[in-house]
């Protein structure tokens, strides 16, 4: 064992399989995150509503989702919903789980972003007699977005790193593929190491990308 803990030829041979599975990982991350980012904004706006029939239930749902483990939620979507006649493919259940879970974190980020807009901007909107919708759409949200990009980016990367949980419902993403390779060949060092390395590289690249996006947005929106 000592002279072949790491087998380069084997690692090279399984790399395409792991990279193929990485496509599923990236897909789940991106679709899940778009879902989380959009739903999160709706949750944040709903939570600020003056109507308690809207804001209270939303606050309850947000707290509930944030306080239960993502794995439990994914199991619930995949194993419990069919009891009620809702059968989701594993990948869909996984993406939905990621999206729902992270939408609550995103909603907190948006909430902080909205709270950071000075009161004068709201007052100027009243003085111009803008509707609530217009005020959010044209005045508040465009200003709240650049400051929340770094925090949203952190959650994007965090969500990316949670995708191995999808292997628990047999979605063949990177982690699941690595486990399959391991069980077929009884070699785990190379597949697991490759998975770790690919996560590391993609996380670092995303971080740099997010900083660029933030700087670009700031220039574009603030002139």
């Amino acid at each position: 064992m000592s002279d072949n803990v790491w087998d380069w030829a084997f690692a090279w041979k399984i790399l395409p399989r792991i990279l193929d599975a990485a496509i599923i990982t990236i897909e789940a991350t991106l679709i899940g995150f778009v879902f989380a980012a959009v739903l999160g904004l709706l949750l944040a706006l709903g939570r600020r509503s003056r109507n308690p029939l809207l804001s209270y239930p939303i606050a309850g749902v947000v707290e509930f989702i944030r306080s239960t483990p993502l794995l439990v939620q994914i199991y619930f979507l995949y194993f419990v919903l069919p009891e009620f006649g809702v059968v989701l493919p594993a990948l869909v259940a996984g993406i939905l789980g990621l999206g729902l879970h992270f939408s609550t974190y995103c909603s907190e980020v948006y909430r902080a972003g909205l709270d950071s807009i000075p009161r004068g901007q709201w007052e100027a909107s009243v003085a111009l007699n803008l509707s609530t919708y217009r005020t959010y759409r044209d005045i508040i949200v465009p200003q709240a977005i650049p400051p929340v990009v770094p925090a949203l980016g952190n959650y994007l990367v965090a969500m990316f790193k949670e995708t191995p949980l999808l292997s628990a419902i047999a979605v063949v993403e990177m982690m699941q593929e690595a486990k399959i390779v391991g069980s077929e060949t009884f070699r785990y060092v190379e597949p697991m190491t490759l998975v770790g390395a690919i996560f590391l590289v993609l996380s670092l690249v995303s971080m740099v990308g997010i900083r660029r996006v933030e700087a670009w947005l700031r220039r574009k929106i603030m002139g």
């Binding site: 000075p118 111009l128 007699n129 509707s131």
Partner: peptide, 29 residues
């Protein structure tokens, strides 16, 4: 709609140009 106000600290919309600030209300209100 009969009333309009100018504030001590301006409260212009920083993400819009000068003319963008001026046309926002006329177009959307």
């Amino acid at each position: 709609s009969h009333i309009s106000m100018v504030f001590q600290h301006f409260h212009l919309f920083p993400h819009m140009t000068a003319i963008g600030n001026v046309i926002e209300g006329p177009i959307h209100v």
